[in-house]
């Protein structure tokens, strides 16, 4: 019997309506704790409408954004969308926020001098608006003047932060309801400890901060093509900060080659340089038994929730059913 943990599904705005709709409609019967929705900036479905549709097509599962970059939306839009989704979800909505991936921010010409301050201010501002306050507040990216939401009563929306670096992790431990982490195992161990320590320093319990681990999960036992997996891993490597890479014993030269190739052309070209070792370090792949073994490893270092997918390829629907069944079978085993 493993450490207690939940299993969830991760989707992105770049997926088709058919795929995201299937996941929403089947999430409850699969036994998923949450559906986390990542925003691929300006690509595919619109994040808030997709989140609404996912809430409307499911009954029990928690639906969270995972994440929305605060740097690409007006803070008033984030606050208003939060109120609207909270009403639709009746307590099932969680707001996952972050600064945004390095590659994305560069691609869209978004520059932020003090990302930790920006995220801290954004979280504080959203909570104050949802509490019913009228605000005059500003940051690098937003400016509010005598603005309020006109809420008759305060609302409490859980905020999860998708973060990487040490300062961001500490901020999360201090202020967030949860953290969404991605990265290699050694990094995850370090990050969870940092979040827990920061929570306790701030007078909170480490259990006050949920730890959601979302790494690419690639069920190769159901026909997923490895080239898809390698492409995803190339993108993850390109978005991984140096501080995280420094913790790993991977071939740094190869890693740099991948990052340069992704930046210069695309993840598809970068995938050419992703070998089996890197695939294993940056993703959870293989048979359902092996994948669930890895989930349990991640849970053993303090993760409270593990997210499956994307990439969704091959016979991913059957793969999902079988992975959830495998998790379930281990829970009921003596």
């Amino acid at each position: 019997m493993s450490e207690s943990y939940e299993v969830s599904i991760g989707i992105t705005t770049h997926m088709s309506v058919n795929a995201t709709g299937w996941i929403a409609q089947n999430s409850d019967s699969l036994g998923a704790r949450s559906i986390w929705i990542g925003e691929d900036i300006a690509l595919g479905q619109e994040i808030f409408v997709l989140t609404a549709a996912t809430l409307l097509q499911s009954k029990k599962v928690r639906v969270g954004t995972g994440i929305i970059p605060v740097t690409v939306h007006n803070i008033a839009t984030l606050a208003r969308a939060g109120v609207t989704l909270d009403e639709i979800g009746a307590g099932r909505f969680a707001f996952g926020l972050g600064i945004g991936g390095i590659q994305d921010l560069e691609k869209y010409g978004i520059h932020i001098k003090r990302p930790v301050t920006e995220l801290r201010k954004s979280v504080k501002t959203l909570r104050r608006l949802w509490a019913g306050e009228t605000l005059d507040s500003s940051s690098e990216k937003f400016s509010l003047h005598d603005f309020n939401l006109g809420q008759p009563s305060p609302i409490n929306i859980p905020i999860f932060l998708g973060v990487r670096g040490p300062k961001m992790l500490k901020l999360t431990g201090k202020v967030a309801d949860g953290v969404i982490l991605s990265g290699p195992f050694d990094y995850l161990r370090y990050a969870i400890k940092l979040v827990d320590d920061a929570a306790e320093e701030a007078g909170r319990s480490k259990n006050d901060v949920e730890k959601v681990v979302w790494v690419p999960t690639i069920p190769t036992f159901k026909g997923i093509q490895e080239k898809v997996a390698r492409r995803v891993v190339a993108l993850v490597i390109a978005d991984t900060p140096d501080a995280v890479l420094d913790m790993l014993t991977v071939d740094r030269e190869k890693v740099n080659q991948i990052r340069e190739t992704v930046a210069a052309s695309s993840p598809k070209e970068g995938a050419e340089f992703v070998d089996d070792e890197l695939l294993d370090v940056f993703s959870i792949s293989g048979t359902k038994e092996h994948m669930v073994d890895r989930f349990e490893e991640v849970a053993s270092i303090g993760a409270t929730e593990v997210v499956i997918g994307p990439p969704f390829s091959g016979d991913w629907r059957k793969a999902l059913v079988e992975i959830f069944a495998e998790v379930d079978s281990r829970r009921v085993a003596p």
């Binding site: 619109e46 808030f48 409408v49 989140t51 609404a52 409307l56 839009t77 109120v83 639709i88």
Partner: peptide
């Protein structure tokens, strides 16, 4: 939409349902 407090596209989705 704005200055309405609710984000109109999300309200529209719920109405469509």
């Amino acid at each position: 939409d704005f200055p309405a407090i609710r984000y109109a596209p999300v309200v529209a989705a719920a109405i469509a349902e």
